[in-house]
């Protein structure tokens, strides 16, 4: 079984985010890291291949300036190899443009199963996986909390408002994985060393045969017309609990007529 996992490399979410004032794109100047949202997909893929008794986990990512830091993390977890799409013309791509690029790269990898995160941590449109499935014209199941492969069928527990649904479809298929549903393994020292030698194939738009007009800023056909500061909520009173803070809460709830 061949599983391809989409992994996004993003600015460290612990650092404050910033839009570039000249382009209104998210600043991506510092080193990028593996999006935590995708570490679950990588773990899920590794577990599925282990359960199937063999197979291969490959990665695909689109990121600026040949960035591979996040890919190396996922390779250190145990993925075999990776494809990175990097091209200056991709700056400012929207979700649809991103999906077209990733789908084209994935198509050449001929996977049985494609995994992605439900939503990324930085852009979180939550649309790229379903768009990839759309471009590839394959079935898809979103919001997976558990995945099982039986023969050529993938069976998923799909998270819902009320609980979960059992959903299944034939492969090749795409499944998006909900964050937090598996415990991503920590890369071992051996894994980290091995990852340095694992193959990462870097492709540009020409190699994928994609016209630069359908991606990047022009492809996006949406424009940031302005960015404003939101009204800040004012912080109120903060008190230290000396054993009677609960009285203060009761008083406040009383003022609000809740009690």
């Amino acid at each position: 079984m061949k599983v391809v996992v989409c992994v996004k490399q993003i600015p460290d979410p612990a650092l404050p985010g910033e839009l570039d004032p000249s382009t209104n794109y998210l600043k991506r100047d510092d080193k990028l890291i593996l999006d935590e949202s995708d570490s679950y997909g990588v773990e899920m893929a590794l577990q599925l291949v282990e359960a199937a008794g063999g197979g291969e986990v490959s990665l695909v990512s689109m990121a600026p300036k040949g960035e591979v830091s996040g890919l190396r993390t996922a390779l250190a977890m145990g993925a075999e190899d990776a494809v990175l799409v990097s091209d200056d013309a991709l700056a400012g791509s929207d979700a649809l443009g991103t999906a077209k690029v990733l789908a084209t790269a994935i198509s050449a990898m001929s996977p049985d199963l494609v995994l992605a995160g439900v939503e990324s941590s930085d852009g979180y449109t939550g649309t790229v996986p379903e768009m990839i499935a759309g471009v590839l014209d394959i079935p898809s199941i979103t919001f997976a909390k558990q995945i099982q492969v039986e023969g050529s069928t993938v069976k998923v527990q799909r998270q819902t408002e009320a609980g979960y649904d059992d959903v299944e479809c034939s492969m090749p298929a795409l499944v998006s994985v909900t964050a937090g549903v598996v415990e991503p393994r920590y890369p071992s020292f051996k894994g980290i060393m091995a990852a340095k030698k694992k193959p990462v194939e870097e492709l540009d738009l020409a190699a994928l045969g994609i016209d630069s007009g359908v991606v990047g800023k022009n492809g996006a056909r949406q424009e940031t017309v302005r960015v404003t500061d939101a009204e800040e909520r004012q912080a109120g009173e903060v008190i230290e609990d000396d054993g009677d803070a609960h009285e203060k809460i009761v008083e406040f709830l009383g003022e609000l007529k809740v009690v």
């Binding site: 929207d94 649809l96 649309t127 379903e130 408002e161």
Partner: peptide, 21 residues
Amino acid sequence: ADGRDTAARLAVRIDQPVVTN
């Protein structure tokens, strides 16, 4: 969940962008 799935598939089918959130 259904709104996102539908909009994403539709975006591909009619080749138009979506703006989310």
